[in-house]
Design a protein around this nucleic acid. Structure first.
Lengths: 203, 203, 203, 203
DNA sequence: ATGTAAACGAGACGGTACGTCCAGTCTTCCG
DNA sequence: CGGAAGACTGGACGTACCGTCTCGTTTACAT
């Protein structure tokens, strides 16, 4: 009689509707793109998703929760891309930052970043979840690139790769948060600090 | 050429009440300390200040504006202190960060920081004003310290002092934003990056 | 052939709360008695009824609407009574008007009448509804009395009963509206006009 | 001792500005024509008149007071006209009521009447003043006509002329208040009651 | 001429209520 | 029993006016 195979859950009554779950996340992602976090409302999400408010409260409990899941599941992408890898770490990072520079001149992109950051800070208790959903991936991307560089040029980095990644990410995000421009000078200085300039590839 | 004695101002109607202005800023500062930015309401500020709502809308237009002015005028202080100066830059920074580390364990301090950062990100159009009201002073404090160090140990810094100040500030704030702990390892790594440890003073 | 069973109503979502409906009407009636129509506020009604403002706006849309319904459903009575019937129409009307005369000397009664009339005139689009809710019943009462008299004394009335009822009602209300006293002379003249005095019962 | 000569007035300081007084009354009259009494505001009048609010409060104290004076001084006319006099009282009244019938079909006229009546009922303490400013003149006009008729045809009226005038006025105003139509039947019945039809002139 | 004093326009003040929006909860019916 | 629909209490929003209160500016009389 032992059923073996774990009943995945004690399961009674109607199962959760995947359709509703996805509809909510998609609606949230759509609305996020078009307005600030403050203006994003549970009612708005429910209406756009064709879903009862209760369904959202049942499964997420707050709009921050919905946003976190939407980001974690890729319904909404932090529009920051990832640096390429041509073997020249400094050059790659420079190119990446330059691309960002032109990208955030589009108001839509700029707003989306601010919206996400605002969601982060408004989150309170969920800020850790937010961090891992949002910031971690970016850091991870940078980290991988720094790791590789480190392997090729041991001792050429001023600090552990993961730390440098975090530093770059923090500087970038804070700059975007305050709508300050990514000037060429600023980019150069950041690169100088993080990938000590010029000489690193020469022994 | 006589400058013609500037008309002091074209002034009609009852003049603005300084008493109300101060009452609003004080009330906002008090309330900020006790709750999040989301929970801070215009009605609450008006009631606490003994002021009509219209008076707030007349002069500030949004709660973010009130918070910016309260900060700019020192009614509310960003509880981050400023590093001492004993001649040992690295040591001073380390001590400062260590002090912060214990300080932000108090929930009140931690909440205040998050509140202010939330106000910043919610500000939208005023984010630049927010930046100069809040972040600039911290940066300026760090900057001064780095400048002095640079003068004493030319070439000992990995990047221009002001840039290092910004980097330290950004890393710190973002860490606080996400409620991540200021570990000793993190502090050490930051110092290693910014004030290349040990060696710089030896030829 | 069965008519297909009238859809009882297409009914979705939580049904309207009768408790709230009654609470609002009772609260409005209570408040009306104690203040003018101008001083009667939606917020006051909502608070007194323990109801959200939205509930009032959802179902009535204006305070005039609430007052109309309160009157129509008898939560608030126009304090004008109805003439008795002893067989002597002129005497009955005289007694009724005399009773009113002393009654409206109480400021509370006087204020309530003015309040209701003010609600009527402020109503605008709903003035027809107001009329049928308020004035019609009074008229109807008078009408019945005149009808009966007419039956007993054919030709003794100067105009159709319903018209005489309307005339008496209009004269009375306008007099109350302007806070002018119901003097004995005025009453006598009205009766003389409407129930041609003395002689009608003699052939 | 001889008091004699009244000090014309103890008069110090700047005298009241007639220009402002007139501007206020004109502004009030203009605004009354375009909106309801409820929507008529002191601030609106002050702005339209180019006058400080205090000037209105100094001299009138309430918008009802302004309206009363505007009516009393003829800045705003109750659009009811006055019956002609061709010797045939019944015919003249009939013609007058018929003219009104078509006139009040214009929404502007209808609204103005309701506005004035609303001002009356909202007035409270000033309702007596309102009455003499507004209703009295109409009554007076009717009264004069009835008086003359009475002189020509003694005993031909069912009640004292002034009373009949009041009755006609009251019936008319209440009908207008409730936006009920002035039908031909209603007019005929009123005339039958007030100027007993046909026979009175024949012996 | 020069006070002195009241009325003036302007407009900010503390308030009250407006009508709207949304939060989060609750009830009902449907599948 | 999950989910949509939607009504519920509660409370902040930003606006409109209230009636009061300064301001600086006329404008008249009384020195």
């Amino acid at each position: 009689m032992s059923v073996g195979a774990e009943k995945p859950v004690e399961h009674r009554g109607r199962p959760r509707s995947e359709k509703s779950r996805v509809a909510v996340l998609e609606a949230a992602a759509d609305l996020m793109a078009g307005c600030g976090f403050q203006e994003l409302t549970i009612e708005g999400i429910a209406a756009a998703a064709g879903v009862g408010k209760q369904t959202i409260y049942r499964w997420w409990g707050s709009k921050a929760g919905v946003v976190v899941e939407a980001l974690a599941e890729g319904f909404l992408e932090m529009p920051l891309g990832v640096p390429e890898d041509t073997g020249d770490l400094r050059g790659d990072l420079g190119a990446w930052l330059a691309a960002l520079k032109s990208e955030i001149e589009e108001p839509e992109v700029s707003r989306l970043i601010q919206t996400i950051m605002s969601a982060l800070t408004s989150a309170g208790e969920t800020s850790a979840a937010m961090h891992s959903a949002l910031v971690q991936p970016i850091m991870a991307g940078l980290d991988a690139r720094f790791q590789e560089h480190d392997r090729n040029h041991p001792g050429g980095l001023a600090a552990p790769p993961s730390f440098l990644a975090e530093t770059v990410g923090a500087s970038l995000l804070l700059r975007l948060m305050f709508s300050r421009p990514l000037t060429t000078e600023w980019i150069d200085q950041l690169l100088d600090l993080v990938v000590p300039s010029g000489r690193p590839d020469s022994p």
